[in-house]
């Protein structure tokens, strides 16, 4: 399931912070991303690979440089998941009302 990959990718606080920093910019290189994080460049690259694996981040190569940006399509499954539960409970409450009506007091 795609959602579980997204949740896993965002479960790590550093990875989440990287994702949020990318979301606030148009595009960033690994070294730009590294600034402000107390994490090594290879570690940042590893987090980026995980985010790319979950479809959350896209990479653009230019010569020997790589640039990263948020892939907006990547969040759609997560938005759908939250929407599903937002619709879930009101629908269940309607059923609960019927059950209560049918019970012996």
């Amino acid at each position: 399931m795609v959602e579980s990959e997204i949740f896993r990718a965002l479960a790590d606080p550093t990875r989440r912070a990287i994702f949020e920093r990318l979301a606030g910019a148009r595009e960033m290189s690994v070294s730009q991303l590294k600034a402000g994080f107390d994490v090594s460049q290879p570690a940042i690259s590893q987090h980026l690979a995980a985010l790319r694996g979950a479809g959350l981040v896209a990479e653009r190569r230019e010569g020997r440089f790589a640039y990263y940006r948020v892939d907006p399509k990547g969040l759609t499954p997560l938005a759908c998941w939250i929407d599903r539960y937002r619709a879930f409970w009101p629908a269940r409450i309607e059923k609960l009302k019927d059950v209560l009506k049918g019970m012996d007091r």
């Binding site: 979301a23 148009r26 948020v70 907006p72 969040l75 759609t76 938005a79």
Partner: peptide
């Protein structure tokens, strides 16, 4: 973000 977020809206939210 809207249902199908565009790059721009996600970044603006960001």
């Amino acid at each position: 973000a809207p249902r199908r977020p565009t790059a721009r809206t996600v970044m603006q939210s960001g």
